[in-house]
Amino acid sequence: MDYKNFQTFTAEQKGGILTVDINFGPVNVQGQEMLADLSSLCLRLERDRSVKVVVFQSSNPGYWVCHYDTNLLRDMSEEAVPRNEVKLLDLQSVLERLSNVPQATIAKIEGFARGGGHEMALALDMRFAARGKAKFMQMEVGMGI
């Protein structure tokens, strides 16, 4: 399987292990580019039985994945709706798909995992944080969302 042509990360396969190295701008913001790349990655992983484990790490030691692009939150409904009418945000849909790939998925975290980055880590099967370097933050509470 070909794991090339991503904008926000590189992916390298060695044997049954695929290492995804996130490298998108200064803080690895989850915008449409990263969501498109993650969706494309999921499509490939769903079809590839040669990969057994996927490790997500960052090229930037200060940030694993910073947060969801807050400009994209304009799509959120401000009105209460019945549970069966709730529509997932793009981020939620992609992370749900990522959580269901057949491979074991691992977050190797140094630096900030904030908001959507924290949620991405939680969507994976395992999380390993560098002692004294990893920082987790869920800013949605302070933003009232």
Results as ranks from 00 to 15, higher is better:
S50N: 14
Q57C: 04
M1K: 08
S93T: 09
F56M: 14
S59G: 14
V141N: 06
L95A: 03
L43R: 14
N28G: 04
M126C: 07
K14R: 13
R127Y: 00
D75A: 10
A113I: 07
F112P: 00
F128D: 05
L91M: 13
V29F: 04
R97Y: 06
N71M: 12
M126W: 11
G117Q: 04
Q32K: 11
F6E: 07
L95N: 09
D48L: 13
R83Q: 03
G115V: 01
S50G: 12
I17T: 15
Y68D: 14
D75F: 01
Q92D: 15
Q32S: 14
L73M: 12
F24R: 07
F112L: 15
M34G: 08
G144V: 03
H118Q: 13
D2G: 10
G15P: 07
F136P: 10
N60I: 10
I145S: 10
Q30D: 07
I106K: 09
R131K: 11
W64T: 06
Q30W: 06
L35Q: 10
D48K: 04
H118C: 06
G15H: 01
G25P: 07
S39W: 03
L73A: 12
I22G: 04
E96S: 09
R127F: 01
E33N: 14
F128A: 12
Q92L: 04
M139N: 08
R74L: 09
Q103T: 08
G111R: 06
L98A: 15
Q57E: 13
M120E: 02
V20N: 01
V20S: 00
F24H: 15
R83M: 08
N100W: 00
G144I: 01
K108P: 07
S40N: 14
M137R: 10
Q30H: 05
F56N: 09
E140Q: 11
G115N: 14
A129F: 12
